[in-house]
Design a protein around this nucleic acid. Structure first.
Lengths: 336, 336
DNA sequence: CTGAAAGCGCTTACAG
DNA sequence: CTGAAAGCGCTTACAG
């Protein structure tokens, strides 16, 4: 009855612990899972664990329990600061809940999104948090909970976003309050609409309510990110802009519009005031990039994690719109 | 001999495929792993897989093969654009190699770093890529390959970084070339030094070689990120700065110094020229934040992934310094 | 080439 | 409270 005492590979297993402690496998398992066990047994197991530096193998455990403590995070890219900050917050929140984040970058590619979703399944993730431009999520196995961010699929999947409609309203209200008489909404994006596309309607709603004139330049798909600047240029005549207040769908757009107007010698915020959306502080300067509607990032991350981890208990596929705030930072008159 | 045909839970298993195809378990496994199998068997298995929508359970497979196709990514934070871009590139590279990235955010906290390393072990990752401020990695199980970025632990662990020393030299050479007569190095950082701290020595080396006078303000630990600005202010007298060329250890620092000098009415680049380090394009403006030494991000990510995936074949714990380039972007006279 | 069987490291009823 | 045993979904020698 002489077995080799040393295993060839590094990591000790539960069997090693049981042998070291002189107890059975099941007892070790119980100690680890905090199921009551005799005091002496418990001590022996615990010191054996310490001595051997034992750690549970999550994979083996997952095989039995059908729980891997991993959640897949689908993101288009981390080069957009909003996505980077969001991924940071989601990952930290997951770790606080003792979950691991499997990060997947899709590059806005629907095919890659599908592939990643399947990969997640294959890795038996306990859930998926997805910021996706995928046309639909129907083909996805509904046995695994999924939460979307900024894109609502009514009826099946909960969605977390900032209160985009309200954010648009808030921007309009502020611009009016700051004396603007002729407002403009500027937005670009992919063909597939998401929650962010409620910013425009919210803005227009508040304009109407305030009885202020407004217009909209809204482009979707293809080269909309660059094409919009030609349309903006058309509205500049003799060094004056047709509007005195602009709400941009995103801060990066606000910054580019700011630069464009300044090229034409138009003063911001004196002649034209600009409000953006996102509110990610620029790492280099430590400042907001412009006056902006701030998304509650930490809250959004926490909410998405809670939803995906407690998917079974949740009543309905909610559309959770978290409150936004306005911050003045250079492109509106209240920061003068 | 009547078994229930339908499993209660969603995901089909290999057993289901075998039953559907009328072959044994082992045969299914062989088809999946592309081990030669009779043509008819192969076809039957493949159509059964398609019909059932079967996917291998990576966990079960990993249990046998000791390979999980997961790599842990340890990052201090994703709010720094360099870390965000790097994480993006690393994740995409891993995915191209059919690996998954388990992202862990450590917030510069050594304890969290240790915890994450252990978590990685517990999840049986095939390797770790770490950008860490951990004092040492000795306590880490050496059975799992680890590659560091920007921090070299000689003797055991390969390290990938940009050629920091050369980058410092390059900055000095450029400033001299652009007519600077009195140079300054500015750097801050944590107490624990890393590869990035070779930027200063590289800079000074080139200054000496060129016979140009230089000074250095280099702070480490605690509140060095804010304290350095007081030291800079001391060098400003009557609206003039003691130096006409500055090399900053990072772009964010360069930007803040730029703002500080401008507050005092000092013209950049006319009176003082500034070069930073990192070269991450600002998402909002689409521009480099300043004249800078650009790190070869994609190359660094690819190299780190290759090293960690082929750790066994590699000869030595290399210190891989990848080539940097200089870009002029507003804070040096060559961009006028 | 194919199948039956052992085993990876765990958990969990089930007896004792 | 404790242990022996079955089984999670795979892979891999081993016979046939």
């Amino acid at each position: 009855m002489c077995h080799a005492v040393l295993k060839k590979s590094g990591q000790p297993t539960m069997k090693d612990v049981a042998r070291e402690a002189g107890v059975s496998l099941g007892t070790v398992s119980k100690v680890i899972n905090e199921i009551p066990v005799g005091e002496t047994y418990k001590n022996r197991v615990e010191s054996a664990i310490r001595k051997l530096g034992y750690r549970v193998n999550n994979y083996a455990r997952g095989l039995k329990t059908n729980k891997t403590n991993c959640v897949a995070l689908l993101m288009p890219s981390l080069t957009h600061p909003f996505f980077a900050y969001l991924t940071d917050a989601l990952t930290e929140s997951l770790m606080r809940h003792d979950y691991r984040a499997i990060l997947m970058i899709t590059n806005y590619d629907p095919e890659a999104e599908t592939k990643c979703l399947l990969l997640g399944q294959q890795n038996k993730v306990d859930g998926v948090i997805a910021l996706t431009y995928h046309p639909n999520l129907d083909e996805i196995d509904d046995s695994i909970p999924i939460v979307t961010i900024d894109r609502h699929f009514p009826g099946r999947i909960p969605c977390v976003s900032s209160d985009n409609f309200r954010g648009g309203e808030l921007a309009a209200e502020k611009l009016v309050e700051l004396g603007c008489k002729k407002l403009l909404y500027l937005g670009t994006g992919p063909e597939i609409l998401g929650e962010a596309d409620k910013r425009g309607p919210g803005f227009e709603n508040a304009c109407r309510k305030a009885g202020v004139g407004y217009d909209r330049i809204s482009l979707h798909g293809g080269d909309s990110d660059t094409a919009i600047f030609d349309l903006i240029r058309e509205r500049i005549k003799n060094g004056a802009f047709d509007f005195d207040g602009i709400f941009c769908k995103a801060d990066w757009l606000a910054r580019k519009v700011l630069n464009l107007l300044q090229e034409y010698g138009i003063q911001v915020p004196e002649e034209v005031q600009i409000i953006g959306y996102d509110g990610i502080i620029d790492y280099a300067t430590g400042l907001y990039p412009c006056s902006t509607i701030v998304q509650p990032l930490a809250m959004m991350a926490e909410a998405a994690v809670n939803l995906v981890l407690h998917a079974d208990e949740d009543l309905a596929p909610v559309n959770l719109c978290l409150p936004v705030t306005y911050v003045s930072a250079g492109t509106t008159k209240d920061s003068l």
